[in-house]
């Protein structure tokens, strides 16, 4: 009778102890995951990579996402330029006109030159330019 009582007690204690350990793990695991950097940079990333330098041939362009906004990166013979890829007219995503070396909007034929200036069509303002820095062969686009 007595030994049975002791046996039951230890089992309950063992269960309780195991439960508390599980609880502690359940607490620590998400915390560690939370503190682990979710991406290389924290909130409001200062710069985003557009790829390796050698991935861009001369006059090659690429549209990347920077903080959820499309950005067009152009490799000119003088170096890299990056502009907001949102047309200032009605917000379409611009494309690259390889023949004329101009940024073109597919919607209403807005045209921008390599300084982002409007050279044709209805856009009221130039495209916003982003800073570009080539760091360790990586083309980094600076946000704002």
């Amino acid at each position: 009778m007595n030994s049975k009582n002791i046996h039951r007690r230890t089992f309950l204690d063992w269960l309780l102890g195991a439960g508390l350990v599980v609880w502690a793990i359940g607490f620590v695991a998400p915390v560690v995951a939370y503190l682990w950097p979710a991406q290389r940079r924290g909130p409001g990333a200062q710069a985003v990579s557009a790829g390796k330098q050698q991935d861009f041939a001369e006059w090659q362009t690429k549209i990347i996402a920077l903080n959820g906004q499309p950005v067009i990166v152009i490799r000119t013979p003088q170096g890299f330029r990056a502009f907001s890829a949102i047309c200032t007219h009605l917000g379409c995503i611009v494309t690259w006109d390889a023949a004329r070396h101009l940024v073109a909007c597919p919607c209403h034929a807005g045209l921008f030159d390599l300084n982002g200036r409007v050279v044709g069509g209805p856009p009221p303002r130039p495209l916003m330019e982003y800073g570009v820095a080539v760091v360790n062969n990586e083309v980094m686009i600076k946000s704002a």
Binding site: A38, Q39, G44
Partner: peptide, 19 residues
């Protein structure tokens, strides 16, 4: 960045929504 950092917490950070 207050609003953006809260958005970062709930959308990017692991288990940020939980915290």
């Amino acid at each position: 960045s207050a609003f953006e950092s809260v958005r970062f917490i709930v959308t990017k950070a692991n288990f940020g929504w939980l915290i």
